[in-house]
Computed example of a mutant assay.
Amino acid sequence: MEFPFTGEPIPASEEAVYAAFPSYRQHGLAMFGPDRVVYSADALPILQKLYQTPLHADDLWLLTPPKCGTTWMSELAWLVNHDCDFEAAKSYLVPDRAHFLDMPVLASPRGREAMTASGSRMMMPITDRPRPWHIQTHLPLNFLPPALLDTCKVIYVVRNPKDAVVSFYKMLQNNKTLSPELTVDQYAELYMADRCISTPFFSNVLQAWKQRNHPNMLFVTFEEMKQDLRGVINRVAAHLGKQLTEKQLEQLERHLSFESMKDNQWVNKENLGYRKTDSSTGESQAFMRKGQTGDWKNNLSTEVAQKMDVWMEENLRGTGLELVTELPKK
């Protein structure tokens, strides 16, 4: 089963891209597949291997674009699928309980080499993990095994891209992937132009949206989780064929609150170097930063926010999908 796509290099003449992502300048970036998804130029063999990931009916796959609630939903789904075993959840979500499938393709060649040399379990082959597998991935559906939806339960989570782009920018700045001179507005412009790692955003989302009625697909938004967490927990439980007691629902709601998640060492990625403070600015560098809807207003300029509104409208027109950028205050 061959990966059906090839890559087209992003030329060095696109200086804005390589100035933004200096760690990729040496090896280059490329666009893969009909939607021209951006990864390191050497990603094709890795994508081929991920496309051949074995499928089992009792595995659970969680698909999201970056910074759209991956960790939040992953912890929720893992606990529901493991009958609310909070004691067993006292081990790292990643890499202990969940496998981040596309870490090798998201990392720069230099970052990949460093993680491999250090023996990081983030780079272990999925086939080395005990089953059943709990899998996280930002890969679009057409980059995943073709029989995925007909074989496994899949949950897809999306967040409005105005908040997602700010959160992604902050994370990439913290882990030194981006140039320190790059502003959030400049990053948002590259994001809308599909010149950032793991973009384009909308082709990824709309592939899943078109499959929302497949019996093995549950499509959820980050904003639904913010507005009605209990309702989403119940939807996930129904999707996974689980029944929860009132006590379990109450425990899950408390456990999955943003403040609880942010302070939970097993999910907040402290072990991966996050949850520190920039000594020069005093700004938090935690992986879980604010978890808000509408925080884009505190980061994006009015001009760029308006450009994103137009971009969203153009890409969502006629799809029936609505992405909420602000929530009413409770």
Score class of each variant (00 low, 15 high):
Leu206Tyr: 04
Val184Asp: 07
Lys307Pro: 13
Lys49Phe: 00
Thr70Trp: 08
Val80Ala: 12
Ala238Phe: 02
Met124Asn: 12
Ser279Pro: 12
Leu172Glu: 08
Ser40Thr: 11
Gln243His: 14
Gly231Ser: 09
Asp228Val: 03
Asn204Gly: 01
Thr137Gln: 04
Asn315Arg: 13
Phe222Ala: 11
Arg230Thr: 08
Asn268Met: 01
Lys49Gln: 15
Gln227Met: 14
Gln285Glu: 13
Leu323Glu: 07
Phe3Trp: 04
Thr6Tyr: 13
Glu246Lys: 03
Ile155Thr: 05
Ile197Trp: 11
Met103Trp: 14
Pro54Ile: 00
Cys68Thr: 11
Thr302Cys: 13
Lys162Asn: 03
Asp85His: 10
Pro140Phe: 10
Pro9Thr: 01
Glu250His: 08
Leu323Gln: 08
Arg317Ala: 14
Phe100Lys: 00
Asp96Tyr: 07
Ala20Ile: 11
Gln48Val: 00
Pro109Trp: 04
Glu15Ala: 15
Leu62Trp: 02
Glu87Ile: 00
Tyr24Lys: 07
Ala98Asn: 01
Gln52Tyr: 00
Phe287Ile: 06
Val17His: 08
Gln306Pro: 15
Asn175Met: 11
Gln227Tyr: 02
Gln26Cys: 07
Gly291Leu: 12
Asn204Tyr: 10
Tyr18Asn: 02
Asp228Ile: 04
Met261Val: 01
Tyr156Thr: 04
Ala286Thr: 09
Phe100His: 03
Leu29Phe: 03
Gln285Leu: 11
Lys210Asn: 15
Gln292Lys: 10
Ile10Met: 02
Tyr39Leu: 10
Thr64Met: 10
Lys269Val: 10
Pro200Cys: 13
Asn271Phe: 09
Gln306Lys: 15
Leu106Asp: 00
Arg36Val: 02
Pro104Val: 02
Thr6Met: 11
Arg129Cys: 11
Lys67Cys: 01
Asp59Trp: 03
Met1Ser: 06
Ala30Leu: 10
Phe5Met: 06
Ala164Gly: 02
Ala208Trp: 07
Thr70Pro: 00
Thr199Ala: 10
Val232Asp: 04
Gly320Leu: 07
Leu272Lys: 07
Leu44Ala: 12
Leu327Cys: 05
Asp83Leu: 11
Pro22Val: 01
Leu55Cys: 07
Leu139Ile: 03
Lys247Gly: 14
Pro328Arg: 12
Thr221Tyr: 10
Ala117Gly: 02
Asn268Cys: 04
Trp61Gln: 08
His56Arg: 15
Phe143Asp: 06
Leu55Ala: 08
Leu29Gln: 04
Gly291Ala: 11
Gln48Glu: 15
Thr183Cys: 06
Ser279Trp: 12
Leu272Glu: 13
Lys176Pro: 00
Ile135Tyr: 06
Glu87Cys: 01
Leu249His: 12
Arg212Trp: 13
Leu316Cys: 04
Leu76Ala: 09
Gln48Asn: 14
Leu206Val: 01
Tyr187Ala: 01
Cys84Pro: 01
Ser23Cys: 14
Gln227Lys: 15
Asn268Thr: 05
Val105Met: 06
Ala208Ile: 03
Ile46Glu: 14
Met225Val: 08
Glu14Asn: 07
Leu149Asp: 08
Pro200Ile: 11
Pro66Val: 13
Glu322Cys: 15
Glu303Leu: 11
Arg97Pro: 00
Leu252Trp: 07
Glu224Val: 00
Asn216Gln: 05
Phe21Thr: 01
Pro45Cys: 05
Val38His: 12
Gly291Pro: 13
Ser23Glu: 15
Gln306Asn: 14
Pro140Thr: 12
Leu79Ala: 03
Leu300Ala: 03
Leu141Tyr: 08
Asn174Gln: 05
Tyr24Gln: 11
Leu218Thr: 05
Ala286Val: 10
